[in-house]
Protein backbone atom coordinates (compact mmCIF):
# COMPACT_ATOMS: atom_id res chain seq x y z
CA UNK A 1 0.00 0.00 0.00
CA UNK A 2 2.84 2.37 0.94
CA UNK A 3 4.38 1.86 -2.50
CA UNK A 4 1.17 2.81 -4.24
CA UNK A 5 0.82 5.85 -2.01
CA UNK A 6 4.30 6.88 -3.10
CA UNK A 7 3.19 6.74 -6.72
CA UNK A 8 0.18 8.95 -5.98
CA UNK A 9 2.43 11.44 -4.25
CA UNK A 10 4.86 11.50 -7.18
CA UNK A 11 2.17 12.14 -9.75
CA UNK A 12 0.87 14.91 -7.53
CA UNK A 13 4.29 16.55 -7.34
CA UNK A 14 4.89 16.10 -11.02
CA UNK A 15 1.73 17.86 -12.05
CA UNK A 16 2.56 20.74 -9.73
CA UNK A 17 5.97 21.09 -11.29
CA UNK A 18 4.60 22.47 -14.52
CA UNK A 19 3.41 25.75 -13.14
CA UNK A 20 2.27 27.45 -16.32
CA UNK A 21 0.67 24.26 -17.49
CA UNK A 22 -1.33 24.23 -14.37
CA UNK A 23 -2.39 27.85 -14.55
CA UNK A 24 -3.66 27.35 -18.08
CA UNK A 25 -5.66 24.36 -17.07
CA UNK A 26 -7.42 26.44 -14.45
CA UNK A 27 -7.84 29.32 -16.88
CA UNK A 28 -9.18 26.94 -19.50
CA UNK A 29 -11.87 25.71 -17.17
CA UNK A 30 -12.76 29.24 -16.18
CA UNK A 31 -13.17 30.40 -19.76
CA UNK A 32 -14.99 27.19 -20.62
CA UNK A 33 -17.51 27.80 -17.87
CA UNK A 34 -18.13 31.37 -18.96
CA UNK A 35 -18.48 30.56 -22.62
CA UNK A 36 -20.84 27.70 -21.83
CA UNK A 37 -22.85 30.11 -19.71
CA UNK A 38 -23.26 32.51 -22.61
CA UNK A 39 -24.03 29.75 -25.06
CA UNK A 40 -26.81 28.36 -22.93
CA UNK A 41 -28.15 31.80 -22.15
CA UNK A 42 -28.49 32.27 -25.90
CA UNK A 43 -30.22 28.91 -26.19
CA UNK A 44 -32.72 29.95 -23.55
CA UNK A 45 -33.10 33.50 -24.88
CA UNK A 46 -36.40 32.99 -26.65
CA UNK A 47 -37.73 30.16 -24.56
CA UNK A 48 -39.75 31.72 -21.78
CA UNK A 49 -37.98 29.94 -18.96
CA UNK A 50 -37.93 26.19 -19.37
CA UNK A 51 -37.06 23.78 -22.15
CA UNK A 52 -37.95 20.12 -21.74
CA UNK A 53 -38.63 20.79 -18.09
CA UNK A 54 -35.16 22.18 -17.44
CA UNK A 55 -34.61 25.76 -16.35
CA UNK A 56 -31.66 27.68 -17.72
CA UNK A 57 -29.55 27.22 -14.60
CA UNK A 58 -30.23 23.50 -14.53
CA UNK A 59 -29.25 23.04 -18.16
CA UNK A 60 -26.17 25.15 -17.56
CA UNK A 61 -25.34 23.08 -14.49
CA UNK A 62 -25.48 19.86 -16.49
CA UNK A 63 -23.07 21.19 -19.09
CA UNK A 64 -20.71 23.11 -16.81
CA UNK A 65 -20.43 20.50 -14.08
CA UNK A 66 -19.99 17.79 -16.70
CA UNK A 67 -17.16 19.81 -18.24
CA UNK A 68 -15.63 20.12 -14.81
CA UNK A 69 -15.91 16.38 -14.22
CA UNK A 70 -14.40 15.69 -17.62
CA UNK A 71 -11.26 17.66 -16.81
CA UNK A 72 -10.95 15.75 -13.55
CA UNK A 73 -11.42 12.21 -14.79
CA UNK A 74 -9.63 12.53 -18.11
CA UNK A 75 -6.15 11.53 -16.99
CA UNK A 76 -4.73 10.35 -20.32
CA UNK A 77 -4.18 6.90 -18.82
CA UNK A 78 -5.02 5.18 -22.11
CA UNK A 79 -2.46 7.36 -23.82
CA UNK A 80 0.34 6.68 -21.38
CA UNK A 81 -0.39 3.01 -21.39
CA UNK A 82 -0.54 2.63 -25.16
CA UNK A 83 2.56 4.74 -25.63
CA UNK A 84 4.54 2.72 -23.17
CA UNK A 85 3.39 -0.48 -24.82
CA UNK A 86 4.29 0.66 -28.31
CA UNK A 87 7.58 2.24 -27.26
CA UNK A 88 8.54 -0.69 -25.11
CA UNK A 89 8.86 1.21 -21.81
CA UNK A 90 6.16 -1.08 -20.53
CA UNK A 91 9.00 -3.44 -19.65
CA UNK A 92 10.09 -1.00 -16.98
CA UNK A 93 6.69 -1.15 -15.38
CA UNK A 94 6.50 -4.89 -15.72
CA UNK A 95 9.82 -5.17 -13.94
CA UNK A 96 8.38 -3.45 -10.89
CA UNK A 97 6.95 -5.83 -8.33
CA UNK A 98 3.55 -4.27 -8.82
CA UNK A 99 0.35 -5.09 -10.63
CA UNK A 100 0.05 -3.19 -13.92
CA UNK A 101 -3.66 -2.52 -13.66
CA UNK A 102 -3.35 -1.33 -10.10
CA UNK A 103 -0.25 0.76 -10.78
CA UNK A 104 -1.92 2.52 -13.67
CA UNK A 105 -5.03 3.04 -11.60
CA UNK A 106 -3.01 4.55 -8.80
CA UNK A 107 -1.15 6.85 -11.14
CA UNK A 108 -4.40 8.06 -12.60
CA UNK A 109 -5.80 8.47 -9.14
CA UNK A 110 -2.92 10.79 -8.32
CA UNK A 111 -3.79 12.97 -11.28
CA UNK A 112 -7.47 12.81 -10.49
CA UNK A 113 -6.93 13.89 -6.89
CA UNK A 114 -4.67 16.77 -7.93
CA UNK A 115 -7.28 17.97 -10.36
CA UNK A 116 -10.00 17.48 -7.80
CA UNK A 117 -8.25 19.67 -5.26
CA UNK A 118 -6.98 22.36 -7.57
CA UNK A 119 -9.64 22.67 -10.23
CA UNK A 120 -12.59 20.46 -9.36
CA UNK A 121 -13.54 21.87 -6.00
CA UNK A 122 -12.88 25.54 -6.80
CA UNK A 123 -14.86 25.27 -10.01
CA UNK A 124 -17.74 23.51 -8.42
CA UNK A 125 -17.86 26.29 -5.87
CA UNK A 126 -17.66 28.87 -8.63
CA UNK A 127 -20.43 27.27 -10.63
CA UNK A 128 -22.62 26.95 -7.59
CA UNK A 129 -22.05 30.30 -5.95
CA UNK A 130 -21.15 32.70 -8.74
CA UNK A 131 -23.81 31.48 -11.11
CA UNK A 132 -26.30 30.45 -8.46
CA UNK A 133 -26.89 26.91 -9.66
CA UNK A 134 -29.65 25.39 -7.53
CA UNK A 135 -27.76 22.74 -5.60
CA UNK A 136 -29.54 20.90 -2.84
CA UNK A 137 -27.52 20.91 0.37
CA UNK A 138 -28.07 17.61 2.08
CA UNK A 139 -27.09 13.99 1.98
CA UNK A 140 -27.00 14.30 -1.80
CA UNK A 141 -23.59 16.01 -1.50
CA UNK A 142 -22.19 12.81 -0.04
CA UNK A 143 -23.82 10.84 -2.82
CA UNK A 144 -22.31 13.25 -5.29
CA UNK A 145 -18.80 12.84 -3.88
CA UNK A 146 -19.07 9.07 -3.99
CA UNK A 147 -20.46 9.19 -7.48
CA UNK A 148 -17.61 11.43 -8.62
CA UNK A 149 -15.14 8.75 -7.56
CA UNK A 150 -17.26 6.16 -9.28
CA UNK A 151 -17.22 8.22 -12.46
CA UNK A 152 -13.46 8.32 -12.25
CA UNK A 153 -13.32 4.56 -11.82
CA UNK A 154 -15.61 3.91 -14.79
CA UNK A 155 -13.63 6.31 -16.92
CA UNK A 156 -10.32 4.84 -15.84
CA UNK A 157 -11.35 1.30 -16.59
CA UNK A 158 -12.60 2.26 -20.03
CA UNK A 159 -9.28 4.05 -20.58
CA UNK A 160 -7.42 0.98 -19.45
CA UNK A 161 -9.18 -1.18 -21.99
CA UNK A 162 -8.53 1.35 -24.74
CA UNK A 163 -4.91 1.65 -23.63
CA UNK A 164 -4.10 -2.04 -23.74
CA UNK A 165 -5.94 -2.65 -27.00
CA UNK A 166 -4.44 0.25 -28.92
CA UNK A 167 -1.15 -0.72 -30.44
CA UNK A 168 0.32 2.49 -31.72
CA UNK A 169 0.44 6.20 -31.43
CA UNK A 170 -2.06 6.85 -34.19
CA UNK A 171 -4.54 4.25 -33.17
CA UNK A 172 -4.58 5.27 -29.52
CA UNK A 173 -5.20 8.84 -30.54
CA UNK A 174 -7.98 7.73 -32.85
CA UNK A 175 -9.57 5.51 -30.22
CA UNK A 176 -9.28 8.23 -27.63
CA UNK A 177 -11.03 10.69 -29.91
CA UNK A 178 -13.83 8.28 -30.69
CA UNK A 179 -14.20 7.35 -27.06
CA UNK A 180 -14.25 10.89 -25.70
CA UNK A 181 -16.56 12.18 -28.42
CA UNK A 182 -19.02 9.35 -28.07
CA UNK A 183 -18.99 9.38 -24.30
CA UNK A 184 -19.39 13.11 -23.94
CA UNK A 185 -22.17 13.26 -26.47
CA UNK A 186 -24.15 10.24 -25.32
CA UNK A 187 -23.76 10.97 -21.62
CA UNK A 188 -25.43 14.33 -21.80
CA UNK A 189 -22.27 16.25 -21.03
CA UNK A 190 -22.56 18.44 -24.14
CA UNK A 191 -26.33 18.69 -24.42
CA UNK A 192 -28.39 17.66 -21.38
CA UNK A 193 -30.13 14.33 -21.88
CA UNK A 194 -33.51 16.04 -21.57
CA UNK A 195 -32.95 17.69 -24.95
CA UNK A 196 -32.60 14.39 -26.77
CA UNK A 197 -35.57 13.06 -28.71
CA UNK A 198 -38.10 11.16 -26.62
CA UNK A 199 -37.46 7.88 -28.44
CA UNK A 200 -33.72 8.00 -27.88
CA UNK A 201 -33.69 8.72 -24.16
CA UNK A 202 -34.43 5.21 -22.81
CA UNK A 203 -31.59 3.90 -24.94
CA UNK A 204 -29.19 6.49 -23.55
CA UNK A 205 -30.19 5.65 -20.00
CA UNK A 206 -29.30 1.99 -20.54
CA UNK A 207 -25.83 2.82 -21.83
CA UNK A 208 -22.96 3.08 -19.34
CA UNK A 209 -22.08 6.62 -20.35
CA UNK A 210 -24.83 8.47 -18.53
CA UNK A 211 -23.43 6.96 -15.32
CA UNK A 212 -20.26 9.00 -15.84
CA UNK A 213 -21.75 12.47 -16.15
CA UNK A 214 -25.49 12.52 -15.83
CA UNK A 215 -25.51 10.63 -12.55
CA UNK A 216 -23.11 12.82 -10.53
CA UNK A 217 -24.70 16.05 -11.75
CA UNK A 218 -28.13 14.74 -11.05
CA UNK A 219 -27.06 13.80 -7.52
CA UNK A 220 -25.46 17.21 -7.02
CA UNK A 221 -28.67 18.95 -7.99
CA UNK A 222 -30.47 16.61 -5.60
CA UNK A 223 -33.37 15.91 -7.93
CA UNK A 224 -33.93 12.34 -6.84
CA UNK A 225 -35.12 10.73 -3.63
CA UNK A 226 -32.66 8.84 -1.45
CA UNK A 227 -33.58 5.31 -2.64
CA UNK A 228 -33.40 6.47 -6.23
CA UNK A 229 -30.01 8.04 -5.57
CA UNK A 230 -28.68 4.87 -4.00
CA UNK A 231 -29.93 2.93 -6.98
CA UNK A 232 -28.02 5.25 -9.30
CA UNK A 233 -24.85 4.70 -7.29
CA UNK A 234 -25.40 0.95 -7.46
CA UNK A 235 -25.75 1.16 -11.22
CA UNK A 236 -22.47 3.06 -11.34
CA UNK A 237 -20.84 0.39 -9.19
CA UNK A 238 -22.19 -2.24 -11.54
CA UNK A 239 -20.56 -0.55 -14.50
CA UNK A 240 -17.29 -0.28 -12.61
CA UNK A 241 -17.37 -4.00 -11.91
CA UNK A 242 -18.16 -4.78 -15.53
CA UNK A 243 -15.42 -2.63 -17.01
CA UNK A 244 -12.92 -3.66 -14.39
CA UNK A 245 -13.50 -7.33 -15.14
CA UNK A 246 -13.20 -6.72 -18.86
CA UNK A 247 -10.04 -4.68 -18.31
CA UNK A 248 -8.37 -7.39 -16.27
CA UNK A 249 -9.25 -10.03 -18.84
CA UNK A 250 -7.85 -7.93 -21.66
CA UNK A 251 -4.83 -7.12 -19.59
CA UNK A 252 -3.93 -10.76 -19.12
CA UNK A 253 -4.45 -11.52 -22.81
CA UNK A 254 -2.39 -8.59 -23.97
CA UNK A 255 0.53 -9.24 -21.65
CA UNK A 256 0.71 -12.74 -23.05
CA UNK A 257 1.00 -11.38 -26.54
CA UNK A 258 3.36 -8.52 -25.78
CA UNK A 259 6.25 -8.20 -28.18
CA UNK A 260 8.47 -5.53 -26.84
CA UNK A 261 9.85 -3.26 -29.51
CA UNK A 262 12.42 -0.48 -29.36
CA UNK A 263 15.85 -0.87 -27.84
Amino acid sequence: MRRYAAIVRNMFLESLNFRADFIFMVLGNLVGVFLAYYLWRAVYAGSGGTLHGLGFLQAFAYVAVSGCIFTMIETWAEWDLAMSISRGDIVLRLHLPLDLHLTTLVESLGIFLTRLVFTGVPFLLLIIFAFGVPVAAGINLIFFTVSLFFSFLISFNIDFIVGVTAFSFESVLGLKLIKDAVILFLSGAVIPLAFFPEALRPVLMVLPFQAMYYTPVNLLLGEKSIPESVLMLLIQAGWIAAFMTAGRLFHRKILGKLTVSGG
Binding site: R9, F12, L13, L16, N17, R19, F22
Partner: peptide
Protein backbone atom coordinates in the same frame (compact mmCIF):
# COMPACT_ATOMS: atom_id res chain seq x y z
CA UNK B 1 16.62 25.12 -8.34
CA UNK B 2 13.66 23.06 -7.36
CA UNK B 3 12.86 22.73 -3.73
CA UNK B 4 12.33 19.33 -2.27
CA UNK B 5 9.18 17.61 -1.22
CA UNK B 6 5.55 18.55 -1.17
CA UNK B 7 5.93 21.91 0.55
CA UNK B 8 8.82 22.72 -1.77
CA UNK B 9 6.65 22.10 -4.79
CA UNK B 10 4.09 24.50 -3.38
CA UNK B 11 6.71 27.18 -2.78
CA UNK B 12 7.99 26.67 -6.32
CA UNK B 13 4.55 27.55 -7.57
Amino acid sequence: ERREGLSGAFKDL
